[in-house]
Computed example of a mutant assay.
Amino acid sequence: MATLPRPGRVEWIGLRTARGQAMREVEQALAEAGKGLAGDRYQGGSGKRGITLIQAEHLPAIAALAGLESVAPALLRRNVVVSGLPLVALKGRRFRLGETLLETTESCDPCSRMEAALGPGGYNAMRGHGGWCARIVEGGRIRLGDALVPVGDAAV
């Protein structure tokens, strides 16, 4: 279970400055240990939700289940879209994302805002595809194209 076929890759990064505001797409973000992403609304919170991740391969599935042609990452309100690695394999593990060290804390379940973002049934279209929340253990920059690589077997 610890072996993965290849590293993942950062495909998209977004920040939400305040509740209800649209996501702002960025090329890089500064992750602050125990806090969150600089400029994101969750910065300075409990740390359990320092960063949110979703798997790129799930975007077409969410779109299909919502009856849409495609879904833009910003609509789903996650900070980072990663491709090439099954995020569920990171459950209970630490991993490097660019310069940062993260650890998964909990699944990132959809909220009722998905009904407005994706249309009626949007919440249910995202169930099981919402991604993960992670704590920032060591801060640093996360950039488009950075690798996501699991490290060790530290349980959360």
Rank of each mutant, 00 (worst) to 15 (best):
M1E: 13
M1H: 14
A2F: 11
T3L: 14
T3I: 13
T3S: 09
P5M: 08
R6M: 12
P7F: 03
P7G: 06
R9N: 04
V10D: 05
W12V: 05
L15F: 01
R16S: 07
R16H: 04
A18G: 09
R19S: 14
G20A: 07
G20R: 08
Q21A: 15
A22W: 00
V26R: 03
V26C: 04
V26D: 03
A29N: 04
L30T: 12
A31I: 03
A33G: 11
K35S: 15
K35C: 13
G36C: 03
Y42E: 13
Q43R: 13
S46C: 13
S46P: 01
K48T: 13
I51C: 08
I54E: 01
L59S: 05
P60M: 10
L65M: 12
G67N: 07
E69S: 13
S70E: 15
A72Y: 00
R77Y: 07
N79A: 04
V82Y: 04
V82I: 15
S83Y: 02
G84V: 13
L85Y: 04
P86A: 14
V88P: 01
V88W: 07
A89C: 12
R93P: 11
R96Y: 07
L97Y: 04
G98N: 09
L102Q: 12
T105M: 04
S107F: 12
R113L: 13
R113M: 08
M114G: 06
L118N: 02
G121S: 09
G121Q: 00
N124H: 05
M126N: 05
M126E: 10
R127P: 00
G128P: 10
G130E: 01
W132C: 06
A134L: 08
G139N: 01
I142L: 13
I142K: 02
R143D: 10
R143F: 06
R143E: 14
L148T: 05
V149T: 15
V149R: 12
V151D: 08
D153Y: 04
A154L: 09
A154E: 11
